[in-house]
């Protein structure tokens, strides 16, 4: 992965109100941590950061961060987006050493049309979207591309089948399925499922503490001194088991 130059500035305004003002002024709050130095709060130009994210394949970006004329190599650790507008809200940078291996999650992409989809009428299923890889920062792939053109219906690509790029180690259980081709549900299956649960009425729902409709509603038959369950909603009775004998007749009176 090639490093991208990025300008950052030491943060001038702190805390929540400061961050809000920053965002309004077209900047994004950020932080850099890792290495042997203390974390530093930064601010970035929002437009530059957006461009960087949009022009990269994934959010795993290696940046040459220049903070006050000081250069630091860092990985984008996390990008927080606003849930509704998807704008960048905050960025975490993790300082890395060019000679030390790092572990990151890399997205998996497919190439080619699976044979099972093309001819067999199957559906390509992504089971795992990101893989944990370990490599030197310069060797880190932006994404791992898997060729699925040979994949038949019922077959899958396992973690062990994926060829890692040079200098990259893929971590995890080799038997885990990453991508598979499955047959879609047939019309018969779907109608059978629909028939099974044919439109229950809104009130047709089982209750964990089922009320009995034959007059013995809620409470178990109350015997003096018995630790039977008190009537539903009778909080006092539930709180004071010693008063069970008194509580149970009280529940009956309510009815």
């Amino acid at each position: 992965m090639k490093s991208v130059p990025l300008n950052a500035f030491a943060r001038t305004q702190g805390r929540r109100a400061g961050s809000k003002k920053l965002r309004e002024s077209g900047r994004v709050p950020a932080v850099i941590y890792g290495g042997q130095v203390k974390p530093v709060s930064l601010e970035l130009d929002a437009r530059v950061m957006n461009d960087l994210i949009h022009h990269s394949v994934s959010e795993n970006i290696l940046v040459d961060l220049s903070v006050d004329s000081q250069k630091r190599l860092a990985l984008v650790q996390e990008v927080q987006h606003h849930p509704l507008t998807q704008k960048v809200v905050h960025v975490d940078f993790h300082e890395v050493s060019p000679t030390e291996k790092v572990t990151v999650m890399v997205p998996v992409e497919t190439t080619g049309e699976a044979a099972g989809v093309k001819t067999g009428g199957g559906v390509l299923q992504h089971i795992v979207f990101k893989l944990k890889v370990r490599a030197l920062p310069k060797d880190l792939p932006e994404q791992i591309v898997v060729d699925v053109s040979h994949l038949e219906v019922g077959k899958s690509v396992h973690l062990g089948d994926i060829k890692a790029p040079e200098g990259v180690e893929i971590l995890g259980d080799k038997k885990v399925s990453i991508i598979s081709v499955a047959l879609p549900k047939t019309e018969v299956e779907e109608t059978a499922v629909a028939a099974e649960g044919a439109a229950p009425a809104a009130g047709d729902v089982e209750m964990l503490k089922e009320k009995k409709e034959d007059g013995t509603e809620g409470a178990a038959p109350a015997k003096p001194g018995d630790k039977a369950a008190p009537a539903k909603g009778d909080a006092k009775a539930a709180a004071a088991p010693a008063k069970d004998a008194k509580a149970a007749p009280a529940a009956e009176k309510k009815k």
Binding site: P83, L84, V193, A194, E196, G197, A198, A199, P200, A202, G203, V205, E206, M207, L208, K209
Partner: peptide, 21 residues
């Protein structure tokens, strides 16, 4: 097939609130 819970602890619920994201 309309979705609904199979089993609940209490049938009738409070309205709650829908504020926020």
């Amino acid at each position: 097939m309309a979705l609904q819970p199979e089993r609940v602890k209490f049938r009738k619920m409070h309205r709650g609130n829908r504020a926020g994201l």
